[in-house]
């Protein structure tokens, strides 16, 4: 397995990360993309009425190379890419991350694992994770006693 994600980082991105870190301390909140992110492709996650949406950039990944699962309170994304080196070529520049990876994304609440769905469109994965009924707000009736 080759984890190319951190080694292919261009210095200019490291500089950008530094800047983001600086700016995020001045402007807290989530208007700036995250900085200290783990290895693997970038993730966005947001909450909507029904539950969670997770988005991941997976250029070049085929659906048969992708394995998704929800284990307890984590979404596990696994990508197995066969290692292949093209023959008879010279690399002049190599920035694209290569290799298999596994990333666990912590989820903020219980998910109804049976109803999780995912689509891979033009290299972008979008996962829909509905809230588990136990995590939905429940109305509690208050009895008035006189």
């Amino acid at each position: 397995m080759v984890f190319g994600y951190s080694t292919t980082r261009h210095p200019i991105y490291q500089l950008r990360d530094e800047m983001d870190r600086l700016l995020s301390s001045v402007f807290p909140g989530n208007s700036w993309p995250a900085v200290n992110r783990p290895e693997g492709p970038a993730v966005n996650m947001w909450e909507d009425e029904g539950g969670l949406k997770v988005e991941m950039e997976l250029p070049g990944v085929k659906d048969e190379q992708l394995d998704l699962s929800v284990v307890e309170r984590e979404l596990i994304v696994k990508v197995e890419v066969p290692e292949s080196e093209p023959e008879g070529v010279t690399y002049h520049r190599r920035e694209r991350p290569v290799g298999s990876f596994r990333r666990a994304i912590p989820l903020p609440f219980e998910i109804d694992a049976e109803r999780v769905s995912a689509v891979l469109t033009r290299g972008v994965l979008e996962v829909t994770l509905p809230k588990s009924p136990s995590a939905l707000p429940r109305k509690i009736e208050v009895k008035v006693s006189s």
Partner: peptide, 23 residues
């Protein structure tokens, strides 16, 4: 975008990651 630039005997080729781009 991140790119790879490669050279073969008869061509150069460029591979760019552009997830979500509209073909």
């Amino acid at each position: 975008p991140n790119v790879d630039i490669l050279e073969k005997e008869n061509e150069l080729y460029l591979v760019a990651d552009v997830p979500g781009a509209l073909a």
